[in-house]
Simulated scan of single mutants.
Amino acid sequence: MRTIFTLVLFIVSTVSSVSSLSQGSIVVDANGTQLTYTDSGAPDSHPYTTIFAVNGMGFNGGIFSKIQTLAPSRQLRIVAVNRRGYAGSTPLSTYEQNVILNGTADQQAEFSRNIGVELLMFMDEFIQDHNISVFNGDKNSAGGVAVVAWSIGNMAGLSAIAHIEDVPEATRSRLASRIRSLIMQESSSNALGLPAPAQNWVPLDISDPTIPAAHQYTAFAQWVTAYFDHGNLSSRDPDVISWVVPSSFTPFTIFNMTVSQYNTIVDTSINPALDADQLALAPVLEANYRASNFNSTLRGLLPHMENWFITGTRSASFGPYCIWVVEDDNAAAGGGFVNFMTIDGVNHFMHWDDPELTLSVYQSMILS
């Protein structure tokens, strides 16, 4: 199923006070590895649905703060999980960094597996700590949990689903009774272990080594927040995509941030570079992508889970392109494994620029 979702929101008032988000961390293995998070808190009404949102490259979980603020009014609880190295989560060790760059195939597969298992253990601990309700199987009712993996965060989100068999039985049972949606939001094809198209360009050395190394991630943090004027995307023709040049008529998302917000949320240090390095683990990433989406046996372990891929019509090139790739893979697998939604007028940062719309989109998928 593919849906074109268009919603115009008129903001008639401004909320003068923003409720604070609770913060915490959860230890996810015997080595003391921890993942930090912010939590919108439980809505007043029960049951409610919990969303675990996984951050992308160069932006920590603070990028979800606007939808977190609005979540309780939508009978949602949003937990923004910071991947390893971001916002206080345990950094990747020197050994892990070396495995990414120089490890054997088995070592790299184990590294990716561990990242996924860490996320599963995080969700399970949060579920137990906060008594998150099971999903009763009624798609029109609240309850259970959804996983939103945003951008390169799909590397972690898909690894988690792909390795559901690698956690203790009690953990697997709790997750299986609660996970109702996997939402792949704006992944790039190479984050799924699939080739990038020949036209692909990002302001990083993987595309353009002429950009000074010291400025690449700052440039990326600006470029990826832009709006793009693509041609007719329904044609599925890569030549209609604006691969390099953003729109001249819509301010980038990053220009809608205060200096304080930028300094709190944007990470242009070592963490984005480590994320980019992991794109070289293509065989592992592809295995996770195919297992979590198209492996019927594995999907059977999560019987309530509906998978979605969403992108915006004005997002950076990799989102509109990647949805075509996943659509083709879904069709090749016989169809019915993944649902698709294209949201009109939004860019890669819809959850920051259009939080009300974003929550409506999430709810339309979770309750479908």
Rank of each mutant, 00 (worst) to 15 (best):
R84E: 02
T36M: 08
T311S: 07
Q97L: 15
A214T: 15
L175T: 11
F122L: 09
N339A: 12
E327C: 06
N271A: 14
I4Y: 14
W150P: 03
A105T: 07
T14R: 14
G58Q: 10
Y37V: 11
G153K: 03
I78L: 11
I310H: 02
T90I: 00
D329K: 06
V259L: 14
L204K: 04
M350A: 07
M121D: 02
S93N: 12
I179S: 02
E306Y: 06
R180S: 08
V15G: 12
N295T: 05
I11R: 14
V54H: 06
I127W: 05
G56A: 08
Y37N: 13
I211W: 02
F220I: 04
D44I: 05
M184K: 04
T225V: 05
G41M: 03
A71N: 05
S364H: 00
V117P: 08
L92G: 08
A331R: 14
H304A: 07
A30N: 12
A87P: 07
T313M: 06
A282P: 01
F59W: 07
N232D: 15
V167L: 05
Y48P: 00
M57A: 15
D138K: 13
F309W: 10
V326F: 00
R314W: 01
S292H: 04
R172F: 02
V12K: 11
T210F: 02
V117W: 00
A156D: 01
D277H: 11
L119I: 15
A149G: 06
H130I: 07
A282K: 11
S65N: 14
F340H: 05
H230V: 12
S235Y: 13
Q128P: 00
A142N: 13
S20A: 15
V134R: 14
G24R: 13
D29R: 11
S234T: 15
